[in-house]
Simulated scan of single mutants.
Amino acid sequence: MAGVKKPDPARRSERSRQAILQAARELVSEVGYAKVSVEAIAARAGVGKQTIYRWWRSKGAVVFDSFLALSEGDQGVVLPDTGDIEADLKTVMRATVAEFADPGFEAPIRALNLEIVGDPELAAQYREKLAGPVDEGKKARLRSAQRAGQIAPDADLDLALELLYAPLYQRWLLRSGPLTPQYADALVDLALKALRP
C-alpha cells in the first residue's frame, strides 16, 4: 500500500479547467455562441455543470477565459521594432486584419463582443486582462517611434491607437467593407500623416 499514489486534486482541477476552456472554444466555433450552453460545454469537457459554475459565473465568462487562455504564458504583447514605424505598423495591422477576416477567430470574437456590451463586469475584465495589456504593448512601440523622431513627441498615444484601430473595428463590426491588406496599409498611412512630427 505504501507505493500507491493518492490523486492530486490540483492536477485534476487544472485538467478539468483546460478541458472546459477547450470545449468552449470548440463549441463556439462549431455552432455559434448563441447555441452554446453551459450544459453543452460541461458535456463536451466531461465535467458537471456545477464544476463550471464553481469557476465562472456565466457562459460569457467561460468563453472569454477560453480565448484569454490562448495567450497564457505569453510575456505580454511586443510589437516588431525594426526601426521603421511604418513597416512595423503595416505588419501588425495586416496581421490584425487577417485575424478578423478568419472565420475561426471572427465568430467567437463577435460573440464575445456581444456579451461584453451587455455585461459591465465582463467588459471590465476584458479591459483589465486583455485590451489593457495589448494596448500597452502597442503604445510601447509608438513610444519607441517617438524617441526615434518618427512620431511627434507630443502625440497622444491613446488617440493614436484609436486612429489606427477604430476604423478597422467599425468595418469589422458593421461588416461595412472588406478587411484586406490594402485597407490595413491605408489605415497606417493615414494615421502616420497625423502623427508624424
Rank of each mutant, 00 (worst) to 15 (best):
D119H: 11
L89V: 07
A87M: 09
L70I: 05
E106P: 06
A87D: 08
V77P: 01
G46T: 05
N113Q: 09
D65E: 15
T96F: 08
V92G: 08
G46Y: 08
E26Q: 13
D74L: 10
A42H: 07
G83N: 09
A45P: 13
A111V: 00
E115D: 09
D119V: 09
G46S: 08
R57L: 04
A95K: 05
L122C: 03
A111Q: 09
E86Q: 15
A43E: 13
Q125Y: 04
W56K: 02
A124G: 14
S29A: 15
V36F: 03
R57T: 13
A40C: 04
R57D: 15
L27V: 04
L130T: 09
D88K: 11
L112E: 01
V31D: 00
E99D: 12
P120M: 03
A61Q: 15
V62T: 00
R94Q: 14
D102N: 15
M93F: 06
A98W: 02
G73R: 12
D81P: 14
G73Y: 13
E99M: 14
E99H: 14
V47K: 09
L79E: 10
V28R: 03
L89H: 12
T96M: 10
S29L: 11
E26D: 14
M93N: 05
L79R: 01
V28S: 07
L68R: 13
V78A: 13
F100P: 04
V92H: 06
A87K: 14
T91C: 12
L114S: 12
L89P: 06
A40T: 03
E86C: 12
P103K: 05
R110I: 02
I41S: 12
L27H: 02
K90S: 04
A69E: 09
L112I: 00
V28G: 05
A34F: 00
K35I: 00
A61P: 05
R57G: 13
L130P: 00
E115V: 00
A131I: 14
Q125V: 08
V63M: 02
F100E: 10
E72T: 08
G83T: 12
E121I: 07
K49S: 12
S37L: 01
F100H: 10
P80D: 06
S71F: 06
V77I: 07
K49P: 08
V117D: 06
D81H: 15
E115R: 04
R94F: 04
Y126W: 13
P120A: 03
L68F: 10
K59N: 05
V117H: 05
V62G: 06
A98C: 05
G83D: 11
A24I: 03
E39N: 09
R44P: 09
F64Q: 00
I85K: 04
K59G: 02
Y33N: 11
S58A: 09
M93V: 07
G118S: 10
